[in-house]
Amino acid sequence: MNYLERKHRFLFFLRRHQPLKICLILSPSVIWVFLFSFIPLLIMIYHSFMTKGPLGQVLHIFTLANYEKLSFLYLGVFWRSIRLAGMTTFFCFIIGYAVAYWIAIYGGRWKNLFIFLIVIPSWSSLLVRIYAWLFLFRDSGIINYLLMQSSLIDSPIPMTFNEVGVLGCLIYTYLPFMILPLYASIARLDQSVLEAALDLGASPFNRLLKVTIPLTKGGIISGVILTFIPAIGEYIIPDLVGGAKVTMMGNLIADKFLSFRNWPLGSAITTALLIIILLLIFVYAKSEKQSGLFEVQES
C-alpha cells in the first residue's frame, strides 16, 4: 500500500465518521484550552477547599473555612467593582456607539484609517499607557500644570488616586473593546432599512431607538461583555491610578496571594467571583433568549 492509497483510505474513513473528523480538526485548540485554562481552573477550585498552613503553605486537608470567611467586607469591595465596571461599560457604550456610528456611516473612505487610529494605542503596553495617564492627570501633571498656569484654578484638581481617576482610566482602556464590535455590526447595517424608517415617519431619535439599536444588539452585547468582564477583575489600574486605595476584587485577590501567602482564601474569593459573574451572564442570556440575541448575529 503506497502513501497515496493510504491517504485516500484515511480521508475516506474520516468522511464516513464526521464526529471523529471534527474532533481531529479541533484537537489542538481543545487540548490548549484544556491544559492552560480548564486544568488551572480546577487547581484553583481545589485550592479553595484546602487549609492554609500556619506558615502560609497549602495543607491538603479539606475545609469549607475559606468560604465561611467571605464576609460583608468583601461584599463592599465586590459592589465597588460592579459599580466601577458597570459605569465603565455605560460610558464606553455612550461614547463608543457615537464614535462607531459616525465612522461607519460618515467615515467614507477614511473608515479604515479611523479604525486603525483606535487600535494603534493598544500596540503599546498597558503599563506604559497607565503611566502616561498618570503623567497627564496627576497633581503635578501636564493638565493640572496648564490649568494652574492659566490661573483657571488655584490648587490642582485631584484626578488620580481616587475613584474618578480609576473610572477615567478604565473607560480609556476599554473603549476600543467597545468600539470595534459596535463598528462591525453598524457597518453591516442595511442603509435602505434606515432610509425606510425615515420614509415611514420616524424621527431620527426614534429611528435610533427603534431601528438602529435593536438591529445592532449583537454588537452591543459583545461590546458589553468584552468591557464589563475584564473591567470587574481589573487589578493594575486601581493599584496604580487608584493608589491602592480604591480596592477592587482584583486587588483583594492579589493581596491574598502576594502579601499574605493565603492561597486558599484567594482561590475561594476568585471562585466565588467567577460563579457570580457566570450567574449574571446566565440570567442575562436567559432573559434575552426569546429575542434570539445569543444566536448568530443578524445582518
Binding site: L73, L252, D255, F260, N262
Partner: peptide
C-alpha cells in the same frame, strides 16, 4: 494582621 490590612485597604 491580615484582617487589619484587609479592612484598612478595602474600606
Amino acid at each position: 494582621r491580615e484582617e487589619i490590612w484587609e479592612i484598612v485597604k478595602a474600606r
